[in-house]
Amino acid sequence: MIGQYIPGHSPLHQMDPRAKLLFVFAYMFAVFLANNPATYGLLVLFTGIGIYFSRISLSVFYRSMKPVFILILLTSLLHLWMTRGGEALFSFSFLTIYEEGVRQAIYISIRFFLLMAAASLLTFTTSPIDLTDGMESLLKPFERLGVPAHELALMMSIALRFIPTLWEETEKIKKAQMARGADFESGHVFKRVKSYIPVLIPLFISAFRRAEDLALAMESRCYRGGKGRTKWRELHYSHLDVVLLLLFVILLTALWLLRK
């Protein structure tokens, strides 16, 4: 329904979320280092190996990237048409395609794919709750500067917990109002907008009530914030994360040596 996580036991699934978060962030900047066939080839190979080891089928990646295909197509066409330089490969009245334009169009499309694939690999192989734990742990050092890492992570976990519940509730209220004759699909804009109100008010009221219940329950159990709190699930780095770090260092060095 919501979210992209695909449960599994691949090496990528087993890596520590902190390691994956840091890696993806650094990798996205590294992608911009590529500027010739060798460096782009290396990145494609590297990402391909990552996709292979995630044991997630290519059709899933294809589906998640589909919305940006049109964007990729448009920017590629723009480059084909506008970028000048090198030999003219093709000419037809006002349209001339240059070597440089073709090269840029290919590079840009590859860059799109690399970035999308990296982001998808992270969200496909890491559950949102693991990502939350990872972010909390990475933010911990900033607690001294006043960043409430524990509170932020707690709020995010609670939000994650409530998304399916509130989704169901929204659907239920929508159906209940439709049974009473509400119409969300037709009519002019203002009439439609007005029909959302009898859905939103019960939704908000019940959500605030749920919030109150939960706060009360937590307080009765003596919730006192982050200090000294222990965790049910703890994060541990493993040899896989060391491998990831080493791979990244090798990749970065190779990129540096191969780029023009």
Partner: peptide, 27 residues
């Protein structure tokens, strides 16, 4: 409820959840 900080935090979480749900309801 004694702590207004706690109820504020939970309300933030619940409204975040609603925002994510509403983001899926394409009008």
């Amino acid at each position: 409820i004694q702590s207004s900080r706690l109820i504020t935090m939970i309300e933030i979480a619940v409204m975040t959840a609603i925002a994510v749900v509403l983001d899926r309801w394409i009008l």
